[in-house]
Amino acid sequence: MAAGKTGGLKRYYDLNGWLFVAPSLLLIAIFLVYPILRSLYLSFFAGKGMMMKFAGFGNVVRLWNDPVFLQALTNTVTFFIIQVPIMITLALMLAAVLNNDKLKFIGFFRTAIFLPCVASLVAYSVLFKSMFSVDGVVNSALLAIGLISTPIGWLTEPFWAKVLVILAITWRWTGYNMIFYLAALQNVDKSIYEAARIDGVPAWARFVYITVPMLKPVILFTTIISTIGTIQLFDEVYNLTEGRGGPANATLTLSLYIYNLTFRFMPSFGYAATISYVIVLMVALLSFLQFYAARDRS
C-alpha cells in the first residue's frame, strides 16, 4: 500500500473517531470541566453577591474558624463512617441468602428488597418524615412491642435525627448494593459452596471466607460509590428538615451548607466554592485510599 493511501486512511479513521465523541466532549468541557475550574478560581475570592475581591487563602482560614462548617464536616463524616459499613454488611448478608435458589418465594424477596431504590429521594424522605413524627407509626410500633417506654424525638433531638438520616439512607440504598453482589455471586461456581458444606464449614464461615473474598472487587466498587454518594448527601436532609439541617444543625451536611450559603442567604459564592473543594478533596482522597487498601490486601 502506498504511503499516501495509508495517511488518507488514518485521517479518515481519526476524523470519524473524533466526530463520534465530539458532542459529548464538548458538553463535558462546558458543563463539567469549566465549572470545576471556575469553582477553584472562585474559592480565592471573598465577598457577598457580585461584590467580590481577591482574598488569597482567606476562605481557607475562614473555614477553620467557622463552627457551622466544622459541624457540617463532622456530620458528613459521621454519616458515611457509620452508614456505609452497616449498609454494605447488610447488603452482603441479604445477597448471600438470596443467592440460594432453593428458598421459596425467592423472586418475591428479591423484588421486595430491591424496591426502595425505585423511590425518588424526595418522596421517600417525605414518607419517612411522616412515619417518624413523635406520635407517628414508628414510635407507636416501638412502644407497642416494648422496645421503648417514651416516644423518641426523631426530628427534634440531635442524636436521633442523625440516626433517622442513617436509617433512611440505609433503607433506600441497601437493595441497590445487594443487586450488585447478587449478580456477582451468580457467577461464582456453586460447587465451591457444596464442597465447603460437605467439609462441615458452617454458614457464617462460608460467608466470611468464601463469599466476601470472592466479591472483593464489587465490594470495593460499591463502597466507593456509596461513600461518594454519602459525602454529597443533600436531598434527604433537606426534605427531612425543611432545608435547615436541624435540629441545631445536627443533620447539616456540607452540600446543604453550600446550598444555604449560596441560595438561601445573600450569596457568598467564593466561600461556598471553597467548601465545595473540601468535598472534591474528600472524594478524591477516599477513592484513592480505598483503591490502595484493596490492592494492598491482595
Binding site: R38, Q232, L254
Partner: peptide, 24 residues
C-alpha cells in the same frame, strides 16, 4: 487518554459545579 479523563469526571461532586453552573 481522553476517555480516562472522562471517567475521572465520575468523581466530580455536583456541589462543586452548581455555583458556576448557576452563574452561567
Amino acid at each position: 487518554r481522553i476517555y480516562a479523563l472522562v471517567l475521572l469526571t465520575l468523581m466530580v461532586p455536583f456541589a462543586a459545579l452548581m455555583i458556576p453552573l448557576f452563574m452561567m
